[in-house]
């Protein structure tokens, strides 16, 4: 099975074309076709956040969208955020605060937090925002906005500590 016309998009800045099975999720395309296995499959149903990637600046669950739907998008995965010897500030903070244990939810947490900080910077309100116009940064805001990313190892306190460190560093 293949799709026509092909979908053309970029992943971590590289041009990619998809012409395969239209049923293939973006998640499986990243993992199986591109070998970008940093994006994890925890449920395949939009219930865990392990597959979070950033598409056109917004975080999405890559298991809930198809590869062929990505025509024209700019996709960033965990591999595009940093490398072991060129870590992003958030990745460094995750290491320092031990914001993970098994590491399986971690790429999703980091991609999600990266985009979430951008949403905050743009003034998006959340369910716990008291004032929709002026968002006050708080741990509760961070927790609410990160609640789509489950961590069964229970590293939540450390994940929030890592994200908090970044928000404190960037005024």
């Amino acid at each position: 099975m293949s799709c026509n016309p092909p979908a053309k998009f970029t992943v971590n800045g590289m041009a990619r074309t998809y012409t395969g099975d239209p049923r293939r999720s973006l998640l499986d395309f990243l993992r199986d076709d591109l070998g970008l296995c940093g994006t994890k499959k925890g449920c395949d149903h939009g219930q865990c956040g392990a597959c979070t990637v950033i598409v056109d600046g917004r975080r999405i669950n890559s298991c809930l969208t198809l590869a062929i739907m990505q025509h024209g998008s700019e996709i960033t995965t965990i591999e595009g955020l940093g490398e072991p010897d060129h870590l992003s500030a958030l990745q460094r903070a995750f290491i320092k605060h031990d914001g993970f244990q098994c590491g399986y939810c971690t790429p999703g947490q980091i991609c999600s937090a990266t985009a979430m900080l951008e949403e905050l910077a743009q003034g998006w309100p959340s369910h716990v925002s008291a004032d929709l116009q002026h968002i006050k940064l708080s741990d509760d805001e961070l927790r609410e906005r990160m609640s789509g990313n489950l961590c069964r190892c229970g590293a939540y306190s450390n994940i929030i500590a890592a994200i908090r460190e970044i928000t404190e560093a960037t005024p």
Binding site: G38, T77, L81, G82, E83, L87
Partner: peptide, 18 residues
């Protein structure tokens, strides 16, 4: 720090299905 931390936070640690 965990010695494998750099791999885990950059998505380079390889799990079973990968």
């Amino acid at each position: 720090d965990r010695p494998e931390a750099g791999l885990k936070v950059t998505g380079r640690a390889t799990y079973a299905a990968e």
